[in-house]
Design a protein around this nucleic acid. Sequence first.
DNA 1: TTGTACGCGTTATCAG
DNA 2: CTGATAACGCGTACAA
Lengths: 360, 360
Amino acid sequence: MGTIRVTLADVARSAGVSQTAASFVLSGRRKEMRISAEVEARVLRAASETGYRPNIVSRSLRTGTSHTIGFVSDTVATTPFAGHVIWGALDAARDRGHLLFIGETEGDPDLERQLIDAMHDRGVDGIVLASMYTRKIAVPKTLMDRPAVLLNAVPTTRSWIPSVVPDEVEAGRTVVRVLLDAGHRDGIALIGAAPPNQVPKGSLAGVQRLQGITEALHDAGVNLAGAVPCVDWQPDIGYDATRRLLKKTMPSALICFNDRVALGAYQALADAGLDVPADVSVVSFDDDLMASWVRPQLTTVALPHYELGREAINVLLEEDPQRRSNRPPPIHRIPMPLRERDSVRRLPSSQRRARAATVA
Amino acid sequence: MGTIRVTLADVARSAGVSQTAASFVLSGRRKEMRISAEVEARVLRAASETGYRPNIVSRSLRTGTSHTIGFVSDTVATTPFAGHVIWGALDAARDRGHLLFIGETEGDPDLERQLIDAMHDRGVDGIVLASMYTRKIAVPKTLMDRPAVLLNAVPTTRSWIPSVVPDEVEAGRTVVRVLLDAGHRDGIALIGAAPPNQVPKGSLAGVQRLQGITEALHDAGVNLAGAVPCVDWQPDIGYDATRRLLKKTMPSALICFNDRVALGAYQALADAGLDVPADVSVVSFDDDLMASWVRPQLTTVALPHYELGREAINVLLEEDPQRRSNRPPPIHRIPMPLRERDSVRRLPSSQRRARAATVA
DNA sequence: TTGTACGCGTTATCAG
DNA sequence: CTGATAACGCGTACAA
């Protein structure tokens, strides 16, 4: 219906040149083929006058490259997470002239395989396999023989597939640094995990955040005032954990392992008649929406959703060359930016000088 | 890299038959071509043994159908709206063997055109153009000569393009019915719009909700106790509007034009020492997340995001036949389901009987 | 019933 | 510098 598609042959005819000449001009390789400037001009004019657009389907059939990428995730609708990751991926793809197929597996491995195959059938240049939460995943076999990138996930099996993940270890160091810089030292406690290895089951973020925290603490020569693990990072569980902590000790600062846990901690502190940040400071991870809703607004280290999406596409489009080497697959860690808000109290400078002296 | 793609020719060779025979068998038209059952079996076995998958790119080049749909919206990341609409579209597409391209225009008409063109270049079977909020839009010329559907939008210009929108008029009738059924009658007031035509600028939802409300009220022979319009449907504006209303009259029920307005109304009622629903009932539209967060939970008519996405795909895939007729383009109205919660008070039966008598 | 041959629109080779 | 010509993988008239 409507307008007929204008083909390369039409352009060539309209410009009075061969199809070959038109093709080379339009792919910008005219000097390489030593095509006259005058012919080039004629072709270009004909193309723009006729409104020529290359048929990517046939080009794809011929060259094997479709300027198309598949993005399959376990969820797309439920959490704001997915939205922002996709947003970043969309932007990066557009910047590089690619379009994105989207697919949602709902956690079903069969569906996952079907989607990946359907995308391959359509000649995608590569696939981003994204997970809602950072974790290890078994790479589908159907993904292994073509370009692919794991987003928010690392492979359990041996594979060459690169990963893009948040830099959780560094984020752990960051929250500690925030507290130390504000003058906190001996009153720091953990809510959500405990050394050496008590984290929610299967939580990669848990072990990495904990690692960064303990390293930074060790470097500064400070010991934890306490730590209570959680089986899951939910508000009610964080609430209980905080109450348990308060029975044993009076912390000056809480490191909560995510914002939902921090929300629970807020409530427990309030119930205990403690003020944030006057009595107890709180820092956390994720930068959920709620982090700027609660009062006082929560200082937290943000999950870089948008950047994760962007990087996944960039890595996918560049990592192609010599893969399949025996080296372990590259893991790209994206910085988690600190959002400084109102939940951390700067200790008076006398105490801070004391701390500086101790460190020196 | 890795596995070589197996083609139809490979399957035919492996089965010892012609490519034509293989093709007919695999497209399930063997009886139509009267191909022997034995050949069919050989082909099927060869196909499954070799792991044959049809190359959709070449099929698309040959047949002009790619089993691919473009979905371009003005936003995808910010609101849960987009997520659920895309979710519905994804499901419908999968059910019918299609894959979805996603694109985001950020409200930029240039970008919109580029995305639509890029999708057409890749041979999509059609395009869904989605808007975040219901409104009239100028259909891009580049969309007009191929299958397309407008989602949450109706065309300003003459065009044959079908629309899929929420049934706002019926939703307006619904909220009135809820109130009447609960025994409310003479104390009903509007917050957010006022007859005959005072709605936020450009708000299609506003005029349609208002239309449904006034029709239903008229049918029941009841007059409004009051109505104060809003320039925009935001909480603070709803708050002011409600305060203004309360200065003039004491309503028994408020119809707020969306949940954000209702949130403002809640606060204004609380400030006035009024209880919801004991003193004043509240009904609303949208079913935002907040509708189930506020106390008491808000009775509201939900925007059918998921269903809008589904229907857009279904309409796109079916509406193809004889378009371009002079008839106005079809507008598919999706029911907005009522979410009955706790913000409406059932009036005592004495009053209700009185009302029933009046009606009869 | 089966096989042959052509075309979809490009890119790319190769001899003029 | 240009013009035939093959090839990508598939669907389908047409001939055998």
